[in-house]
Design a protein around this nucleic acid. Structure first.
Lengths: 204, 204, 204, 204
DNA sequence: AATGAATGAGTATTCATTCAT
DNA sequence: CATGAATGAATACTCATTCAT
């Protein structure tokens, strides 16, 4: 799906509005005022407000490199890219969590699900390679790995957003990432001379 | 703060409403209808709709053991309790993610903040003890530890919510928790005698 | 009609409320809160909110000396007393104009009419004596005299109220009164006294 | 500022409503019903109810000749115009006295103030000329002159409003005006013309 | 003399959306 | 491609008042 110029204009405005005052400010009225047309004009370009929000989310998501570099550096790139993107457009952090507001709307959930799958696929590929390369320990299910890596990322972004950017997101995010990666590093890699391959799955 | 019977009735109704259809269904009108009174009657018992939402959140939060068992078992209890609670009142989980909706109410923001601090304090204490007891590796900043443990928890809860409870949250949550704990276990514990205290913070 | 202690308490509170924030703030809720009871309690002491407002107006009015000193000094006393009263309880100026808000309520209009008649009677007597004594010129109908004297007084009070007491009401009011009295003085009387009074009346 | 046709329609309706039942009847609901649209439709044409009231007042005020004829005849025209206007739209007069109701809206207060200043300026100019022409005596401050002339006018209008138009406002108002002007005439001028005017001004 | 609980009627305002032009 | 005008449905909230206790 590709957008017309006007549609892009609208998405931009929607982004700016949401950034400035949360999703609550994202009304058709404000939107139309922001780009200097009347409300009905919006409906020439989007069937729905929902369509606009979807476009908004996709736009925000599209900035994330779906594929590309692989292995552990791919993982780093993906996550650091996320931090950089949010830090560059600070208030947009809110958009990232817009989904939460629409959790009950089935139209959105499917969109979000497909987005998440895209992320998981991209990240999953990189992680698999990293595991193969011995940069990340084996024996952790892909789903869990995804949660363990991205959960903290999201939480940090959220904390940053709620604190109104009180700390340096990229710095703290980078540190967090390295901590996580170090935790995930195979023990053999950490102590190369170690033959013992105690499994990481100590479930009780 | 303790609630009257009627106030509790209202909070209960609010809980049911939110559970049934998300925060969007939580209107004063629905609320009053749900407990069989007229709208103004609500205002005898709560000054605001915001007050009701706050009460809702506090109720939701109060189920989490703020203090109590300590060390690693305290950590387990805290997190498993979270999963259990959400699983028990499924859609209410959304309330926890709806911060955005009320972000401009300063009273609300401060409530959320104090809650988060309470959590962090409780969890932090347990984690510190676990570190002291050698159950969790040293050298990770408290903030990062918090993010690393709670980020995945939140994300899993969210995935569960968006999938409409398609999987067993407590089971998957339990597994995730153990994976995380195993990652966090000190290497010394893993390899019986390690004098080297190589820090885990490989930041580059 | 005489009020019980509780009724007086209510009227006092009503006065304070109106003074502090206009008639809009004069609600049964605020009223009851102000004297520390619940709303229904008010209705033990007044049948209506209207009854309270009536009492309020009468209370304000009762401070004006209905009769007493006569002749031109009676006129002076009546008007200067009005200024002094308002100046002493500044915000009460609003109450004085509360009537205007209820102009369409017949219950009030009759009350106001009777009040006005009382004023007119009191002032009229004094004015008649002043005319007889040659202190005020003949040939002006009592109604007009009333308007001409009290209209400017009310307007000045209103200006003072709307300017938030930006000038000294009693001083300016006194000057205004003397100007008016000088205008009303018979020409024969005036021409004789012109020399003595000239300085006093020429303010610009 | 010029109004669209619909806006004028709304102002007219507001006028009729206020006339029929006081400001209390002037609700958005009644307003919309009066012109046969739904309530939200009103907000296409006015941002606020306050905006409507302001328009109402301006409309009411605009009928007064701000400038024009000068000297004593300008004064006469201004004041008689006021009486005529009120007599033509009787109950609307109340709007002019309802300042209290909106006293807390600063925009409103400033509108009232600027109106009053406009009046004072217009009348002041005419009065200054009249003084220069020897039609009104010297030595009375402009402020006092304004009070002395307009105070009685307002009071008479109010009495007329509260009596539900029981007397002929224009007639009584005209008489009052002439009495006031005769009082204000310079004594030197007066003594010369005394014979001609004596009969006209002596009403009792 | 007062309260706790409630109500009917109403308040201004907002929102996404539609339709004829 | 856009507008002017409108709408149905909601929204949170307020007010004076009543009633059983």
């Amino acid at each position: 799906m590709s957008w017309t110029r006007r549609q892009n204009e609208i998405i931009d405005a929607a982004l700016r509005l949401t950034a400035a005052g949360g999703l609550r400010r994202l009304t058709v009225k404000n939107l139309s005022a922001a780009i200097g047309v009347t409300e009905p004009a919006i409906y020439r370009h989007f069937r729905n407000k929902a369509e606009i929000v979807k476009a908004l989310i996709q736009r925000f998501d599209s900035a994330v490199p779906a594929a590309g570099v692989t292995g552990i550096s791919g993982v780093r790139q993906f996550i650091l890219g996320r931090f950089a993107q949010v830090a560059a457009a600070p208030d947009l952090a809110r958009v990232m969590f817009a989904e939460e507001l629409f959790m009950d709307d089935p139209e959105f959930t499917s969109l979000m699900l497909s987005m998440r799958q895209r992320h998981r696929a991209a990240l999953g590929r990189a992680l698999a390679e990293a595991q193969a390369a011995g940069e990340i320990r084996d024996g952790i299910a892909a789903d869990e790995l995804f949660c363990i890596l991205l959960g903290p990322v999201r939480l940090l972004v959220k904390q940053w957003g709620m604190s109104n950017g009180a700390f340096d997101l990229e710095e703290r995010g980078g540190a967090l990432l390295e901590t996580m990666l170090s935790l995930l590093r195979p023990e053999t890699a950490k102590r190369k001379e170690d033959e013992e391959n105690e499994t990481e799955n100590h479930r009780n």
